[in-house]
Every structure is written in C-alpha cells, then in structure tokens.
Nucleic acid binder design. Structure first.
Lengths: 121, 121
DNA sequence: ATGACTGCAAAAGATTTGCATGTAG
DNA sequence: CTACATGCAAATCTTTTGCAGTCAT
C-alpha cells in the first residue's frame, strides 16, 4: 500500500484546489480531460476516494444523486443552491448560530444563490 | 394532481410510522411485500418521493449509497452507525452542544452502535 | 523486478420512467 | 368516465471492479 506518484492524481488535486465550489466526480473528469484526454472516469473515481481516505479531500453526499468533493478539509458547514444544486460553504458568522439553525430550516440568498441549509435536520 | 387514496401508499406510511430507525426504499419494499406480494419497487419509490414532497416523511442521504426515509419530520440531527450503517436520531442533550460538535467530529457509542456525527463538517 | 496506477469496458446498485392496465372519486 | 395509481420491465445514472498493460521506485 505504499503510495506512488501519478501525474493524474496530482492534476486532480491541483484542480480541486482551484475550486471554491464542490465539484462532482464527473465535473472533475470533464476538466482533467483537457490536460489528459485519455484519463478514464474510473481513474478519477479511484483517486478521489483515495484522496478522501487520506484525508486530503472531503467527500460529501448532499443528496442530489452524486457525491461532491471538497478541497477544504477544515470542519465547516455547507449550503446547497436550490436552483443549480451547487454546494457552497456556510459563512462563519452563521456557524455561530448553529443552534438556532437547528431549530428551523434556513433559507436565504448567498452570493446570488437561493440556498437552503443542508444539514441533518 | 389531485391525490387519490391508495392502500399501497397507506401501508408505506403505516410501516414507516412503526420504525424508529430510518429504512431505505428497499427495506420498505421488502416489508410491504408481506402484505402486498405484488407491489413493485417502482411504486414504493414513487410513493416515498410523493410523501417526501408532501412533507409527510423526510428523505435523507447519509452517503452509504442509498437514501433513507424518516417518519419524524420534526427538525433533528442524525448519527450513522459505522458498523451497520443504520441511522439514529441524535439525543437532544447533544443537540444543545451543536456548536461544539461543529468544531470537531463526534465519535461515540449510542445504543450499542459506534456512531460518528453525520453532518456537513 | 515489484507493486501501484492506468485505461477500458463490463458490472453493480439505486432510482426513474414508459406503457398498458387497474381503480378511486 | 377520467385522472391518478399500479405492476412490470427497460432505461438511466453514479460508482465500482476485473483485467491486461504501464510506470514509479
């Protein structure tokens, strides 16, 4: 289980680091393809779960059918856009109000996206 | 879009109300079959999402591959068993500590299940 | 050399959908 | 009657896996 270097995995990590949203495996695949036209979707999935198990990325399942991958491994909350389904980080000032959020659903607008609180309410 | 009565839907609702865990569509299917041997999995899925859109049940996606359905529509948190994957409600006294939970992962034992905090940390 | 990694394609698992038939209102 | 609901099967979508060849160490 000794890790070996792979330029595909490196490219996937670099790509994730450039994104503040939280792409799905397929979005990663589409983008990595620009630099590696022959990369396979299986390789993207294998590397994403490897990176997730190493703790280098976070795997999220917001419930839109596909998993999302987050380069930010610091503990934080997320919100999901009700329009496009994208995942955004929850502003820190709202984190402090988690107890209140837990008492009722949060609906609002962040960065032009209509979001609802994505949590286990 | 006027709702019509169906004994299959009624049975699904009744079954969910008897469960304190949070069954998957397939588990619901297996159980409803005892009373309705000819019910189809498609019908179970159609009714579960109908009930979810009516707000009569909650649909959850803990990330184990399948969606789970929860009869308790009151706002509350969940934890997931790392052994069997089942979903449990988070004890209310812990809800009051949500801010602290948000700062670090929660690992513990509840009702004999080794659980981790299922949230968007 | 050896074991990890890749591309490809097939497989697996969950959910959705099209269609002909059944049934509540 | 006529919509809505059902059963069945096929289709769709995401993710995983087996395998033979490739590459890092």
């Amino acid at each position: 289980m000794a890790l070996k270097y792979s330029k595909q995995r490196e490219a996937i990590k670099e790509f994730l680091a450039t994104r503040t949203d939280h792409p799905t495996a397929d979005v990663v695949y589409m983008n990595i393809r620009k630099a590696f036209p022959n990369i396979s979707l299986g390789t993207v999935y294998r590397n994403l779960s490897l990176l997730a198990s190493l703790g280098e990325v976070n795997k999220m399942t917001p419930g839109d059918g596909a998993d999302h991958f987050d380069w930010n491994t610091e503990p934080h909350y997320h919100v999901v856009c009700t329009e496009c389904g994208c995942v955004q980080d929850l502003p820190m000032e709202l984190v402090q109000d988690m107890n209140k959020l837990a008492e009722k659903y949060y609906d609002g607008v962040i960065d032009g996206h209509n979001v609802y609180f994505y949590g286990n309410l």
